[in-house]
Design a protein around this nucleic acid. Sequence first.
DNA 1: CTAATAATCTAATGAATATTAGAATAATGT
DNA 2: ACATTATTCTAATATTCATTAGATTATTAG
Lengths: 231, 231
Amino acid sequence: MKPATQKDQLFEQVARIGKATSSPKRLELLELLAQSEKSVDQLAQEAGIGIKLASAHLKVLRESHLVKTRKEGKFVLYRLSGQDVANLWVTMRELAENHLAELTLALKELSSKRDKLTTYDRQNLLQQAIRGEIIVLDVRPSDEYLNGHLPFARSIPLAELEQRIEELPKDFPIVAYCRGPFCLMSATAQDVLKTKGYSVQILSDGICEWQAAGMPLHPHHAKPHRAEIAQ
Amino acid sequence: MKPATQKDQLFEQVARIGKATSSPKRLELLELLAQSEKSVDQLAQEAGIGIKLASAHLKVLRESHLVKTRKEGKFVLYRLSGQDVANLWVTMRELAENHLAELTLALKELSSKRDKLTTYDRQNLLQQAIRGEIIVLDVRPSDEYLNGHLPFARSIPLAELEQRIEELPKDFPIVAYCRGPFCLMSATAQDVLKTKGYSVQILSDGICEWQAAGMPLHPHHAKPHRAEIAQ
DNA sequence: CTAATAATCTAATGAATATTAGAATAATGT
DNA sequence: ACATTATTCTAATATTCATTAGATTATTAG
């Protein structure tokens, strides 16, 4: 029926990116993958969905070339196609924050302590971390920390926080961060630490937001990708 | 059925942006709106769709807060909610170019003369324009030019190009641009001018791309928005 | 080889979307 | 007031999408 001009085809291609990002669960998967490479059932568990559904969503993401896969033994490991995909996620989230009042409200309820950071604040935080005046605490799972983390951050995954709490000195203010503004782990960590008498602030940035702002990460410990699955 | 956690709701909100950008025609409308404020039937005509369908798509864009409306007489004028919406479009298009091979191929077919510009190239172009060594030619319709254009660009809409062709001196190389990499107007202008013996290059940037790269525009001639339609 | 695990594919459901036609609303000009 | 123009709303269609269950492929362990 339709002639489908060349122009239409171009917009059609870009719309594939829009389609891929039109599902909340797919966005959640993208945010998880921005932390580190993960297997399908790891993703399914962390996103709270069934494996079959996760696989279906991941297929859509793969077909829109936002994620790539490789196989390691029985496992298929997914990762983002590039840093620019993480940047797209940050761009979309920030746009939503700016224009969707409901989202701003929801975020305020989530945590009134989280403020938007300017480049200056991030530089300042980094300088304080370098000078050892504060403790930057990464409460994400270990593998995500190992894949890349804020400079001078130390890792205590949220699940281990109560047992390992004595590792943290009380002399310095703590700045805790997790996967990003939508992640609740740092807020939970703050609650845990505050009841033990620590002084804790939350950094709403995850590594995507930090990196999108042009700030440096500590280098990845990523293994080389050996066997790439085609397409 | 679902409890719908707070986290889910947050991703849900961002997914609204994805849904709004998941239709090729809506993206085309966004690109048109990035040029200037337009009425519904102007948008429908330029996008090559019926008014009813345009209105429906615009409703979706309005509900996702990507565009705003105001009323002037009988007309409802649509515009982007902010510069960040234009930046999202550029981000999505560039991501698609980087990761979708089909898109890259289609663009190459479209015009092999178009190259990606670096910040340096753009600065260079601007300097040449300032020194008057080149003519920067805006071939978009007048109202889009008046709404904002590249520094030192002169306006000859494509429709008037053949009649007004003697306005252009042959002593200087011409750099033509239009709405952006997906727009064919500058390519058509190049064909017209080349047959008349002009030396013409195409700048693939439209004003979105130029501005997203941090380059300055010549100030808008926009009228103040008087009557805003609620929501 | 067989059993077990990880992931995908197929098929089927209901829900959401795109598109069009027809009616309704709102502002303008006579 | 009336006819005209611009736009939106309502309703109806065909299409596409999300989700789940069941069968299937690929890999490892024994």
